[in-house]
Simulated assay, not measured.
Amino acid sequence: MPNILLTRIDNRLIHGQVAVTWSSHLGANLILVANDEVAGNEVQQSLMDMAVSDVVETRYFTLQETIDKIGFASDNQYIFLVVRNPQDALRLVKGGVPIVEINIGNMHYSEGKEQITSTVSIDDSDKEAFRELNKRGIKMEIRRVPDERAKKIMDFVK
C-alpha cells in the first residue's frame, strides 16, 4: 500500500504553499502531481520544480498512470498527491488509488462558480464530485496552510 500522506486539490498544483509549507509539515519526500495536461508539459514541470526543495522529489503522471503505478511506490516514499480538481480526485479513487483524506486548497473563481471561501469556488460538477467522495468515506477539508483552522467542504455542499 502506498504511503499517501495527503491528497490536495489545488488548481495551481505545485507552488510555494505546496512545495514548502505542506510538504515539510507532512514529512513528504515525493510530490506526485496527477494531471493529464502537466504530465506531458516539461516546461510547466520545470517551472513547478523550481519551487520544490532539493530533498523532495517530484513526479508528474497522467491520472491513468497514477492509477496504474501508485501501487508500486516504495515503502520509503512518503507521497503528497496533488490534483487540480475534485473530479480528478474522484477518478483516482474510482481507479483504486487509496485516498483517505483530501485537503482543498485553491479552486479559483470562474464564470458559473460560487465562491464559498476566499480561495475556493465551486460549481455543480464540483459539488457532485464532493458528494461522491463523501459517500466513499473520504475526509475532506478546506485549508490553505497547515496552521489554518479547517472548514468541512460538506458544510458548503448542499
Score class of each variant (00 low, 15 high):
Trp22Cys: 08
Ser23Glu: 09
Leu26Met: 08
Leu30Ile: 05
Leu30Cys: 04
Leu30Trp: 08
Ala34Met: 08
Ala34Phe: 01
Asn35Met: 07
Asn35Leu: 01
Asn35Glu: 01
Glu37Pro: 03
Ala39Ile: 05
Ala39Met: 06
Gly40Met: 09
Asn41Glu: 09
Glu42Asn: 05
Val43Ser: 05
Gln44Trp: 07
Gln45Leu: 09
Gln45Asn: 06
Ser46Trp: 04
Leu47His: 01
Met48Ser: 13
Asp49Glu: 15
Met50Pro: 09
Ala51Arg: 08
Val52Ser: 09
Val52Leu: 10
Val52Ala: 08
Ser53Thr: 05
Asp54Thr: 11
Val56Pro: 09
Val56Met: 11
Thr58Cys: 14
Thr58Gln: 11
Arg59Thr: 11
Tyr60Leu: 06
Tyr60Trp: 05
Phe61Val: 00
Phe61Leu: 13
Phe61Cys: 07
Thr62Gly: 01
Thr62Arg: 04
Thr62Pro: 03
Leu63Val: 15
Leu63His: 06
Glu65Ile: 08
Glu65Cys: 02
Thr66Arg: 01
Ile67Ala: 10
Asp68Thr: 05
Asp68Gln: 12
Lys69Val: 00
Lys69His: 07
Gly71Cys: 04
Phe72Met: 12
Phe72Asp: 15
Ser74Pro: 04
Ser74Gln: 12
Asp75Ile: 12
Asn76Pro: 01
Asn76Lys: 13
Gln77Ala: 14
Gln77Gly: 04
Tyr78Gly: 06
Tyr78His: 15
Tyr78Asn: 15
Tyr78Glu: 15
Tyr78Ile: 02
Phe80Leu: 13
Phe80Thr: 03
Phe80His: 09
Val82Phe: 02
Val83Trp: 03
Val83Thr: 08
Arg84Asp: 02
Asn85Trp: 02
Asn85Phe: 01
Pro86Ile: 03
Pro86Trp: 07
Asp88Lys: 04
Asp88Leu: 09
Leu90Phe: 00
Arg91Pro: 00
Arg91Phe: 00
Val93Lys: 13
Lys94Leu: 12
Gly96His: 10
Val97Tyr: 10
Pro98Val: 07
Ile99Ala: 05
Val100Tyr: 04
Val100Cys: 01
Glu101Cys: 08
Glu101Ala: 11
Ile102Tyr: 00
Ile104Cys: 01
Ile104Leu: 02
Asn106His: 14
Met107Ile: 13
Met107Cys: 10
His108Lys: 12
Tyr109Gly: 05
Tyr109Asp: 03
Tyr109Lys: 13
Ser110Ile: 12
Gly112Lys: 07
Lys113Cys: 09
Glu114Val: 14
Glu114Pro: 08
Gln115Ala: 14
Gln115Trp: 01
Ile116Trp: 11
Thr117Ile: 13
Thr117Asn: 11
Thr119Asp: 14
Thr119Ser: 15
Thr119Gly: 06
Thr119Glu: 15
Val120Asp: 13
Val120Ala: 08
Asp123Leu: 04
Asp123Ile: 05
Ser125Gln: 12
Lys127Thr: 00
Lys127Leu: 05
Ala129Asp: 10
Ala129Ile: 10
Phe130Asn: 04
Phe130Gln: 06
Arg131Cys: 12
Glu132Pro: 06
Glu132Phe: 05
Glu132Lys: 14
Leu133Gly: 03
Asn134Met: 03
Lys135Asn: 13
Lys135Ala: 14
Arg136Ile: 07
Arg136Asn: 11
Ile138Tyr: 02
Met140Glu: 04
Ile142Tyr: 00
Ile142Pro: 01
Arg143Tyr: 00
Arg143Phe: 02
Arg144Thr: 14
Val145Gln: 12
Val145Thr: 12
Pro146Leu: 09
Asp147Tyr: 01
Arg149Met: 03
Lys152Ile: 06
